[in-house]
Design a protein around this nucleic acid. Structure first.
Lengths: 313, 313
DNA sequence: CCAATATATAAGGTTTAACTTATGTAATCA
DNA sequence: TGATTACATAAGTTAAACCTTATATATTGG
């Protein structure tokens, strides 16, 4: 059957007023226009919806059924329209994020700050390693990704929004702890606990040492930052990590940052998405928020982060 | 916004297949036709519903909302269509009846028999006096009415479908009980318990006696048949009632029918509705059922009802 | 890099949806 | 009974809905 929303709307108006003429007035139509719509609807339905007895009209049994139907549909359309308006107006929205595990700590704070600006924000946060991030991007499982070095193989848009200082960490009882401006070459005596080769931190550190003509001894290879830190803490070697992952460990004295020449390796945090990605209003707003305000949240105006101090908030 | 059902239907197909091309195949359309419908829907909604990344497409947040909406609406339309089909096919229906209180007894049996033919029959039965019947007809509160003499003031269609014999009743200890072929004139010695003047039975009995030049003494005036019967039983006079209201009273011997000359007054039961009334399939079927089969249910073929015997079934 | 796949865009044509005015018919009310 | 009210019908116009073919653009897999 070929019922149209127009027919249902006109029908509902007639049923409400129990009058073709009143419905025509409400809809700013001529009375015959209403008659036609009803007639067509009746033809589509295959049953009479109104009966005329004397001056007034009445709903038939079928008419009541169709009236019920028209109301449900109208309600559904109204609800959906309201939901869409909320999305447009950013009173509501869903944010699909994926962040590198090293970025987890401050990403959580970013989201917390942003969420105060959206009335009903639902966040899906996927914390994973570099591989997982690439997978999420490829399959469009995420709106935005926060990570260190963005990959080049996919067609991505990657914008840096905040410094990401990589520092050398050591166990609190390491002999270099008290030394200042340690020459890079002095590190060659220690072995390094490193991340897997695919890791952003790993490749950044390898590039850095290569550039400075220093060969480092890679010892254990860990699949997470936490594992690296624990190994360093246990005295299994030195490590290189983003300072943003260290707040707690530095405060409690479980790890120490070495003052090595050339450090920190200043890298960037990037907010990344696939080229051509269609953002929801909320996702668009979050991206803008990160680009424009995230840095300020960690670096109050006029100050620079220092490699040896915990990140500021 | 000016969303159409067509747009939603095409959209739902695309969302199901996650492909414009597959949707076009399903709907027997060209691919550009699908693109257009989606584009228009997106314009109406004010948000993108799909995003294209590489080869495949994905639903946006707004798209998911609209998809949900389209499914609810489609479901509602399907449900309604099914309900209407059931009405047409008479698997389901609602019957609004009003019956004269004197017809209550056999009307109930009529409905019971008819209800076996309709899977889901809902009956609204209004048992009332003549005045109530007229009110129900005027206000279109009922599909069909079963009554004795139909009124003439309204524009009605009234069709007789069964004999309605009126008989003279008396208390079991009345002296006329044993007499046969009592002359009409002999009744003049008794007073009659009667219904109110507006009653069909009352006017029928008055016309009958007037035609035969007999003056009867009207005694008590009752507003219901049951009251008449109780008064007669109590010995307060004779009564004239439809034999169809007597089954129980005759069987238990609480009332007796007198064998008076000229009786029973043979009148008819009528099925009545307003001219121009639009029947639902079920109402139409019930009317046909009553006209064609009701008489046979009370009078097995070849037999005539006898005034002194209870009605047969 | 070419072939295949998938969607977007453009141009054009047919249909039909939707409305209007004018008029007809039926019922009600003073 | 005539005026009024209400819905139906007829005829005609306008707009837009809808689809087609042809072609462009972008992505992917061999």
């Amino acid at each position: 059957m070929h019922v149209t929303l127009r027919q249902l709307k006109v029908f509902a108006s007639v049923a409400r007023h129990m009058s073709y003429t009143r419905a025509a007035e409400e809809l700013h139509l001529s009375q015959p226009a209403v008659s036609m719509q009803i007639k067509q609807l009746e033809e589509n339905v295959g049953l009479h919806l109104f009966e005329q007895l004397g001056r007034g009209i009445h709903l038939t049994e079928a008419g009541q059924e169709v009236y019920q139907c028209s109301r449900v549909i109208q309600q559904q359309l109204d609800d959906t329209e309201a939901a869409l308006e909320q999305m447009k107006g950013m009173q509501r929205g869903r944010l699909n994020l994926a962040v590198a595990s090293t970025a987890n700590y401050f990403a959580t704070h970013l989201i917390a700050t942003f969420s105060r600006r959206v009335e009903q924000l639902t966040v899906s946060l996927n914390v994973t390693n570099r591989e997982g991030l690439l997978h999420a991007l490829e399959n469009n499982e995420t709106d935005l990704v926060i990570m260190g070095q963005p990959p080049e193989e996919l067609d991505l848009v990657a914008e840096p929004f905040m410094d990401n200082p990589l520092v050398v960490i050591a166990a609190p009882d390491h002999p270099f702890i008290r030394r200042r401006r340690i020459p890079l070459a002095d590190l060659q005596g220690d072995s390094f606990v490193v991340r897997e080769p695919a890791s952003g931190t790993r490749s950044a550190m390898e590039r850095f040492f290569a550039e400075h003509g220093v060969r480092l001894r890679t010892g254990m290879e860990m699949r997470s930052n936490e594992a690296v830190q624990q190994a360093v803490q246990a005295g299994l070697g030195l490590g290189i990590v983003s300072i943003h992952t260290l707040e707690l460990e530095l405060e409690t004295g479980r790890l120490a940052v070495l003052d090595v020449e050339g450090f920190p390796i200043m890298r960037q945090w990037y907010i990344v998405h696939r080229a051509g990605k269609r953002f929801s209003p909320v996702a668009q707003a979050f991206k803008s928020f990160v680009l424009e305000e995230a840095a300020a949240l960690w670096h109050p105006p006029g100050q620079e982060a220092e490699a040896t101090s915990p990140p500021m908030r």
